[in-house]
Structures are given as structure tokens and as C-alpha cells.
Design a binder for these strands. Structure first.
Lengths: 238, 238
DNA sequence: TCTTTCTATATGCTATAGCAAATGGGACGA
DNA sequence: TCGTCCCATTTGCTATAGCATATAGAAAGA
């Protein structure tokens, strides 16, 4: 038998589903930081027995998305400013490494895709600037569009780096240092804050370095870029 | 009540014990790569029911120390050369970050401890060199001593960096890219291979940069140092 | 000798029951 | 009003049973 499509090894066990659901709920903000959780309570909410929920909680605990307050009590992890700063440092370093290897290994097709994404983002940014200059409220569709394009750009750089372990490490650290709420807020500010605007422009510079095959410069730019974004985020919750 | 000592929150649940035992067995080589494992089998070996073992296996699976070969079968993860190389890249980058922050934040006491460790290692290295020059077999006690000192040195740099997330990320990636067997072999070669000898000398350079408070240089040296070691390890299993 | 088919067994997954211990609120006392 | 003690309830942890399905080896055929 020849392999035509990947076997889709997605285990659909209840434990897996519970894990994904809880993780998404925590990162997405539906389960707020510090919220008390119980195995039986979550099991009832999800409509399953406590066993698979327990398994999911263990995995989340390993990711530090769930923490213990005592021997018999759990809660959604609270992220201290210090922890957020620490994660930001790591994230920046890893993004730098991703850009470095993207510069070494990116294919022409990948480069074209990255360029297309930035064009899309620029287009949305242009429309948003028009909104702002005319005193209109920002079009949420375009806000979402620019946000998605930028996020996909970063994902594309990681993909071009072709390092599965790196992608995995980045996903871990991101889940911890960021949540969707903050990211969306960040995107909404992207067209107004001068600092954010400058940072937005850096995407083009990173891509240029990647395209030129200049790993040193690509790493330097991407790392500074990510560190700056992380520093801003860190300043938001005093 | 005032806090005198930390409460020692070490949960002694069977699931935790099973996790630690299995993790140590995998990293230490007692459970070899690719070995088939079953919940019931391990449970019998450990003398507990399958439930806590299952929990441990899930956590190990999350760390990629255990992998699935099919919907109903597990084995100790096999580490491909590619994965090892990828992890080595990440490890090097993170060790560089650790050295950078150590250079920024290390206390005098920490610097003295790092120096003491390198003195200890040098002492052992001197004795081993004497063994070699005299044609004697290397004294295993001194081999162990130099190995421990170097390992503790790296741990000390991480501690000086004072970044819990970084330490955690490093532990993850190390468990994946390295095992004790290889490390010990590496230490045994430390006094004979020219490349290893040169690398051994880099510890002093890293410490000097840290002591001088030169983050840029410290990061550069530590990263190169770790990358070189990882590259050697990667070449050992064709 | 190699491939395929089939079936008995083994295995992972889920639910449930029960235990020992922590938790939290209320009663009592200062 | 505040702090301490106490007990009923809750909660995490473990063991066990059973189910559906994957697995591996034997048997049959090429």
C-alpha cells in the first residue's frame, strides 16, 4: 500500500477532547486566571466521567496552565508579571532562532507566501488608517484580518525554519505568556500606537533579511521585534 | 505564623512517583528507546494499579518521552537524529540566554561558586591527565567528579539567570536531546579528544564574560559552546 | 518462502465506587 | 470584632470492572 494521505492519527478519546477544550477555554479566557476548578465539576460541565478530565488536568498542570493551591484544590494558573516577562524573553529568543533558520532554509514558495501575507496585512492597515483619519470607528473585519495575517506570518516563519521541536517549544511558551484577549487588544492598537506601528513595519525588515539569506540579521531583527512586543504586553497588568 | 521553611509541597501521590520513576528510567537508559510498554505491564512492575501509571504515561507522552505506534500501543520514544539536532539548536540558544542574564544578574556569591566548580573540575582534569600520560586507566572517581562539576556549573549559570521559565524549558529540551549514558561517555572523552578539550576550556571564558558583566559576549560564548557539544552528540548515532 | 486471512488475546479507554484527607463554614470564646 | 477550633462535606486519589477495538500469531493459500 502506498501512502496517499496522512493517517490522521488524531486520537478522539474523551481525555484528548477534554484536554483541548480546557486548554482553549483557559487560553481564550473563558476560564479566568485563578478560577477554582474541580475534577467532578468540570466532568459534569463536559458531560463525561471524572477520569478523562483528570487526565486532561494533569497535562495542563504540566504546562503550568493549571496549578495547585493545596493538596486538594486546583485552579487555573495565575500568571505573575515576572513569569510573563520570563516567558517573553524565551519567546523572543526562540523566534529569533526561527527567523535564523528560515533565512537558511526557506523555499521560494514559502517566501512568496510570507510576502503575500504582509501585503494582505498592509491592505487591511491601509483601510484602518483611512477609518482613523476620517474619524470613523475601526472596521473590526479589517482588524481581524490584519491580526490573522500577522499571526500567520509568524507561523510561516516557524514553518520555514523546519524545526518541529522549535515549533513545539514556541507553542508552549506562547500559551503561557499570552492569551487571545491581549493579542486582540494589541491588534486593535496596531494602527494607533506609534510604538506598535514601528513594530508593524519590522515585519518587512525581517522578511527582507530572510529572503536575503542573512541568518544573523534575521535573528537579530526577529528577536528584537518579539522582545519589544513582549515588553509591551508585560506592562499591561500592573 | 511566619514562614520559616517552604512547606515542601511535594505531592507523594503514586501517580507522581510513577512519573518520576519512569522518567528516570527512560533518561537513564533502563528503558531503552523503542521498548514496548503497556499500562498493565508497568503497573505490575511498579506494584500499583494501572490508573496512576496511565497518568504518568500521559505526562511522558506530552514530553515526547513516550510515543504511540498505533491506537492501542505505546513505546519509549525513539529520538531521530533530526530531532536530536533540532533540540540541540534550541538548547544552545537557551543556554546562551541563560548566560546573558547571568552576566546581568549574577551575585558575587554565585560567581565565587561558579569559579570554585571550575577549580574542582580543573583539579580532576589534572589528575586524569596524569593518568593518561602515565598510561594508567582513567580514575573513574575523577571522571565522575569532573562531570558533576561541569554539570553543576551549567546549572549554576541557569540559577544565576534567575528565570524559572528558562530553567524549565531547558530541562524539557535536555531530557529529549540527551541521556545520561551519552553524557557520561562524553565526560570520559573530555580529557582525550582535542575538540572536547578545547570546549572544556570555554567554561573559563564563559565565566569571565559573566563576571565582567558582558551579556553579549557571555551569550555568544555559551551558545557556541553548547552548539558544539550538541553537534558532537548528534554525530554519534548514525 | 512469502503473503494474506482470521481469530483469540491483549490493550487502551471510560465509568464507577470507595477511601483518606483537606476544605470551608459555623459555633464558641476572647 | 476577631481569632480558634471543630466537624460535615467536598475533593483528589486509587483500584477495579467492563467494553470496544487493535494486535499478533497461527493457519491457509499462492
Amino acid at each position: 500500500m502506498d501512502v496517499m494521505t496522512l493517517p490522521a492519527l488524531t486520537s478522539h478519546s474523551l481525555a484528548d477532547q477534554a484536554y483541548r477544550a480546557l486548554r482553549a477555554a483557559i487560553i481564550g479566557g473563558d476560564l479566568r486566571w485563578g478560577a477554582k476548578i474541580t475534577e467532578r465539576g468540570l466532568a459534569a460541565s463536559l458531560g463525561v466521567s471524572p477520569t478523562p478530565v483528570r487526565e486532561a488536568l494533569r497535562r495542563l498542570e504540566q504546562e503550568q496552565l493549571v496549578e495547585r493551591t493545596g493538596p486538594r484544590s486546583l485552579r487555573v494558573a495565575t500568571v505573575s508579571p515576572k513569569a510573563r516577562t520570563e516567558s517573553g524573553i524565551i519567546e523572543a529568543a526562540l523566534e529569533g532562532v526561527a527567523a535564523r533558520f528560515a533565512a537558511e532554509k526557506a523555499t521560494e514558495r514559502q517566501l512568496a507566501e510570507l510576502e503575500r501575507l504582509l501585503d494582505t496585512a498592509d491592505e487591511a492597515a491601509f483601510l484602518l488608517r483611512a477609518d482613523r483619519d476620517a474619524g470613523r470607528t475601526l472596521n473590526p473585519v479589517q482588524v481581524e484580518r490584519i491580526f490573522d495575517a500577522v499571526r500567520t506570518f509568524h507561523a510561516g516563519v516557524e514553518a520555514a525554519a523546519d524545526n518541529a521541536q522549535l515549533a513545539r517549544a514556541l507553542e508552549q511558551v506562547r500559551a503561557f505568556s499570552r492569551n487571545e484577549r491581549l493579542s486582540i487588544a494589541s491588534a486593535q492598537l496596531a494602527v494607533s500606537s506609534p510604538g506598535q506601528l514601528r513594530r508593524y513595519g519590522q515585519h518587512r525588515e525581517i522578511l527582507a533579511a530572510v529572503r536575503d539569506g542573512d541568518p544573523e540579521r534575521a535573528e537579530q531583527l526577529a528577536r528584537t521585534h518579539a522582545a519589544s512586543a513582549a515588553a509591551d504586553l508585560a506592562g499591561w497588568d500592573a
